[in-house]
Amino acid sequence: MSSASSPSSSSPSSSAAAPPSDVVARLRAAGCVFAEDEARLLVSAARTPDELAAMVGRRAGGLPLEHVLGWAEFHGLRVAVDPGVFVPRRRTEFLVDRAAALAPPRAVVVDLCCGTGALGAALAAALDGAELYAADIDPAAVRCARRNVPAGARVYEGDLYAPLPAALRGRVDILLANVPYVPTEEVGLLPPEARIHEARGALDGGADGLDVLRRVTAEAPGWLAPGGSLLVETSERQAAGAAETFAANGLVPRVCSSDELYATVVIGTVAYSG
Rank of each mutant, 00 (worst) to 15 (best):
S6W: 15
S9H: 14
S11N: 06
S11D: 02
S11K: 14
S11L: 09
S15P: 00
P19M: 10
L27K: 02
L27I: 03
R28S: 14
R40Q: 12
R40T: 12
A45P: 00
A45D: 00
R47M: 06
R47N: 13
E51R: 13
G57Q: 05
R58A: 15
R59N: 06
R59T: 05
G61P: 10
L65F: 00
W71A: 13
F74D: 12
H75G: 01
G76L: 06
A80H: 15
P83Q: 09
V87I: 15
R91G: 01
F94A: 03
L95Y: 13
A99T: 15
L102G: 00
R106L: 13
V110Q: 10
V110D: 03
D111L: 10
L112Q: 02
L119K: 03
A125R: 11
A126R: 15
A126M: 04
E131G: 01
Y133G: 01
D136F: 04
V142I: 02
A145H: 05
R146S: 15
N148K: 08
A151S: 13
A153E: 04
R154I: 00
P163C: 03
A166H: 05
A166T: 08
G170M: 11
D173M: 14
A177T: 06
V182L: 13
V182Y: 08
P183Q: 09
E186Y: 01
V187Q: 03
L190S: 04
P192L: 10
E193D: 14
A194C: 11
I196F: 10
A199Q: 11
R200L: 14
L203Q: 03
D204H: 06
G205I: 03
G206I: 06
D208K: 03
D208N: 04
L210E: 01
L210K: 02
A218L: 01
G222H: 06
G227W: 04
L230P: 02
E236L: 12
E236K: 12
A239M: 08
A240Q: 12
G241H: 08
A243H: 05
N249T: 02
V255C: 06
C256V: 10
L261I: 10
V265P: 08
V265K: 10
V265H: 08
Y272F: 14
